[in-house]
């Protein structure tokens, strides 16, 4: 499963207030669109730490990195070693 799909699935299953389907574009703002709230951002941070084994620095928790599927996927890719999109076992 590609990174974007993993993020969509996590958000749909854990963070959505309006059902379990992620019916938004990958560029839709999580925060402006009310898709998730600040608690959801905390869950996304844990998702990145646990699923990919990546440490997340507080200064990295910005809109540029966490505010849409595309942005979060880009952030994770920038931190992963090449070809390392598989979740940690």
């Amino acid at each position: 499963m590609d990174l974007e799909s993993q993020i969509r699935r996590f958000v749909a299953e854990n963070l959505l207030f309006s059902g379990d389907r992620f019916d938004h574009s990958d560029d839709a703002s999580f925060l402006d669109g009310g898709i998730i709230d600040s608690l959801g951002v905390m869950d996304l941070v844990t998702f990145v730490q646990v699923t990919f084994g990546l440490p997340v620095r507080t200064e990295d928790i910005t809109r540029d990195n966490f505010d849409s599927v595309s942005k979060l996927a880009g952030y994770i890719r920038s931190k992963l070693p090449a070809g390392g999109e598989t979740p940690r076992a």
Binding site: L31, S38, V41, M42, D43, T46, V56, T58, I61, T62
Partner: peptide, 23 residues
């Protein structure tokens, strides 16, 4: 930086340790 809470623990010797809090 978005509003993500951190926990700071202060040891008896005054040493502080801060890390991001899971939800």
């Amino acid at each position: 930086t978005l509003n993500v809470f951190s926990l700071t623990v202060v040891a008896p010797d005054g040493q502080e340790r801060t890390q991001t809090l899971p939800a």
